[in-house]
Design a binder for these strands. Structure first.
Lengths: 313, 313
DNA sequence: TGGAGGAGATAGATCTGGTCTATGGATGAA
DNA sequence: TTCATCCATAGACCAGATCTATCTCCTCCA
């Protein structure tokens, strides 16, 4: 292209840097864990390659010539840059710095991300952890594909396309719930189609929770069209408590409300409705040290058998 | 001291720089005049020394990982700095840049420096030539000792102390001159003591010209105390023409005025009064390319036999 | 004034490690 | 399919980086 490559062996600048810094070849050699003749020869080679004298050899050390000063004015900041880069990468290795960016939907955040992040930031306060909340699984998957974030935790169902790696990290049980007005539904198991007679409260279209519920009704050939959409599950709970409709919510999340008699769990018979949560990473972009530590040490270990793609679980 | 030395072989950054710049190892290898496996191994070694993966190996080349980007943010400016340093030094070699600083007294400037500088700046317009005029030889010698200037041209007498190198570059003939009022002094040779009956015009105390004239009178046990002091020889000439006194001036300089009958040369018998001009450099600070070219190619070559210290010539 | 100490330069032997050639695998284009 | 391109690997080779030992020069100090 426009420019010819370097005309020097960059390794020599290491010697140059420390000879100027310490003023003598001997001291520079100590610092570099080399011997004095080695550094002497490096300086000579550098002078030869640049075609000019860089140092005055005085009785008590080395001082820069005019041309040496010109070089030093560039080499000193250059070496500082390189040293700082090495320091920064080393800090990231030791989790004494670096970044970690995570995304998840609200539900995964409460269940998995929040507790893990709490321990992680306590153990590694110098790692900058960035969390991005996004209601839609597709958006989050895109962020991973683009390399915007290191990892995500999502509940099924979602379409993990190519390149994405998933790891099962837990299961939650979902259930239908009602407020006091519809408490009678909790008296006995109800067939699923019956429930659609009542209004429903849901998180918005596109969220995996909405898709999950839709899936359940679709098995009976029914369309799930909730009367009310709110943005967070917290609001869903409030709406249900105020009898605005039924909803599906994680059992663990509403158990206390059920115990207190504020909410009522509707049994639909059959096995418990389980949804699986997955750690999702880009299969081809290697994780940085912070992300590696986070998934290895701060997330629940994968169960006995791993699963490859994201099932409808 | 505070910091441990580099943990990488700086030479590898050359490969890193061009791999990022061109996007493929193959292209970087071309640019570096190396083979592809060599660059591959350099990148591997660098990743190993830094303890992290810097590149994603994709189908159509190499793209940076997050950690690679961190490194690139530092390596790119560092390499720019080093490349610019190499370019600058190379330009100085070819006299297509760089600096040259010269000092002299007024008289040497007219006779030697000015014509040489004219040719030099014509041949090497990109070299920044800085000329510093100083009336006192001692000041100029100090500037050389301090490394403030590369070289100086002075007329004897002066005290070149240690470390300074002198080279004879020419001789001028001095003579006493008078204006019309004292034209009669030019009729026949005059003994030196007689001249002191008349007023004298001189450059200031401390200049080598003043010292030179003093020396002449001292040989007769006489004190030279000029009635009038002006700062430049141009003003001396004007003063003499206006009959304010006699003066000593370079013969070459006033010959035309004498021919025109505006000035009159006073003969004092004996051999012509010659003063030698010397190029002065610092014996231990090597000259830069510009200064070297200037003394070697643009100043009068030294006569057959060189002289060591500055004589009273 | 002689000797110790500390600076850098030099010579020569050693052997590391950078470099090359040859080859293989993966991918995308024709 | 075949070809072109790109990167990784293996193995051989040898330039050159490194070390030890020694020398010179200078300063400082007894």
């Amino acid at each position: 292209m426009d420019e010819r490559s370097f005309s020097t062996n960059l390794e020599y600048y290491k010697s140059f840097y420390y000879v100027v810094k310490y003023g003598t070849i001997t001291a520079a050699a100590d610092c570099l864990c080399l011997t004095q003749p080695t550094v002497t020869s490096a300086i000579q080679k550098l002078e030869e390659q640049l075609g000019c004298t860089l140092f005055l050899r005085t009785k008590r050390g080395m001082t820069l010539t005019a041309e040496g000063k010109i070089l030093w004015d560039r080499v000193e900041p250059a070496c500082q840059l390189l040293l700082s880069a090495e320091r920064e990468l080393a800090a990231a290795q030791k989790l004494d710095g670096g970044n970690l960016s995570i995304a998840s939907t609200e539900m995964s955040f409460r269940t998995y991300v929040l507790p893990a992040m709490e321990r992680f930031t306590r153990d590694h306060p110098n790692v900058k952890v960035r969390f991005r909340n996004a209601p839609l699984s597709d958006k989050i998957l895109d962020m991973i594909r683009n390399g915007e974030i290191d990892l995500a935790i999502l509940h099924a169902p979602f379409q993990a396309g190519e390149h994405l790696q998933t790891r099962l990290i837990g299961t939650i049980e979902e259930c239908f719930v009602a407020g006091p007005k519809y408490a009678f539904l909790a008296d006995a198991p109800r067939p699923v189609p019956e429930l659609l007679q009542y209004p429903f409260v849901s998180v918005p279209e596109g969220s995996s929770t909405k898709q999950y519920v839709s899936g359940i009704f679709q098995r009976y050939g029914l369309d799930y069209e909730p009367e009310m959409e709110v943005t967070t599950s917290e609001l869903v709970i409030q709406a249900v408590k105020h009898n605005l409709g039924l909803a599906m919510l994680p059992w663990q999340r509403i158990r206390k409300d059920v115990d207190r008699g504020e909410l009522f769990r509707i049994d639909i018979g059959g096995p418990p409705m389980e949804r699986k949560a997955y750690l999702i990473t880009h299969g081809e972009i290697p994780l940085g040290p912070a992300a590696r530590a986070f998934v290895d040490q701060y997330l629940p270990a994968p169960p006995e058998r791993e699963e490859k793609a994201a099932p409808k679980g």
